[in-house]
Computed example of a mutant assay.
Amino acid sequence: MAPSRIRLTTTTRLVLDALLDADPGDPPWGYRLCEITGLGPGTVYPILERLETAGWVAGTWEHPKPDDRPARRTYTVTGTGRLAYAEAKAAKAHRQTARFALRPRMEA
C-alpha cells in the first residue's frame, strides 16, 4: 500500500518545486533534476521513488527511444501530488503563524 503522506524535507521540497516549475511540454528527467536542484543522484532518485510510490509523481519512459542515447524517464507531478503538496504547505504556514502568534510579547 502506498504511503498517504510524504515527509516534506528541504530536499523533497526542492525536487517538487523544480517539477512544478518545469515546462509541461518538456518534463525533467532525474539527472536534469539534479542539475536544477543542485542535489546529487543519491538524493534525487530516492525522493522520486518515494513520490512516485505515494502517487504524487508520475514517471514515464521517453518514447520512442533515441538512437544516440538511452531513453530518459521523465517526471511530472500528478493532480494528487499538487493537491497534497499545496495542503502540506498551507498546513505548515498555518503552524508557523500559530506558533508566532502564541509567543509572549516582550515589553520594553
Rank of each mutant, 00 (worst) to 15 (best):
S4W: 07
G81K: 06
R72I: 07
A22Y: 05
P24Y: 13
W56T: 10
E52C: 02
R5I: 03
A101P: 00
S4D: 13
G79Q: 07
V44E: 00
P46D: 06
A90T: 10
P41L: 08
I6A: 01
A88P: 00
M1G: 11
T12M: 02
E87T: 15
C34A: 10
L51V: 05
E107M: 05
E107A: 02
L16C: 09
A54L: 12
D21Q: 14
A86G: 15
C34R: 06
R105A: 10
R32A: 14
E35W: 06
L48K: 02
L102G: 15
D26C: 13
G38L: 09
I47M: 03
D23I: 07
E62T: 09
T10W: 04
D21V: 06
A91N: 09
D23K: 07
Q96I: 04
T78Y: 05
E62D: 11
R7Y: 05
T60C: 00
A84T: 05
L33H: 11
V77M: 04
P3L: 02
D67T: 14
L8Y: 13
G81Q: 08
L14A: 15
R7Q: 07
K65V: 14
L19T: 05
W56A: 05
L16Y: 03
Y31L: 12
G38T: 12
L51F: 00
E35Q: 15
I6Q: 00
P41Q: 15
R50L: 11
V15D: 01
H63F: 11
L8F: 09
L19D: 05
A2M: 13
T12F: 01
D68A: 13
T9M: 10
R73D: 05
I36T: 13
E107F: 03
R7D: 11
P41R: 14
T60W: 03
G38Y: 08
G81W: 01
A88I: 04
T12P: 01
L19V: 12
T11V: 10
W61V: 13
T37K: 05
K89E: 14
D17M: 05
A18P: 00
E35D: 15
W61I: 05
A18G: 04
L14G: 01
L19M: 12
A54H: 08
G59I: 02
T37S: 10
T60E: 12
D67P: 07
L8V: 04
V77T: 11
R13S: 10
A108S: 11
H94W: 05
T43D: 06
G55L: 08
D67V: 07
R99W: 09
M106Y: 09
A84Y: 02
T78Q: 06
R82Y: 12
A84L: 11
A101N: 09
P46S: 14
H63I: 04
A90Y: 03
A54M: 12
R82S: 10
R13D: 13
P27L: 08
L14M: 15
W56S: 04
F100W: 13
M1A: 12
L8D: 01
P70K: 13
D23L: 07
V15G: 00
P64L: 07
V44C: 01
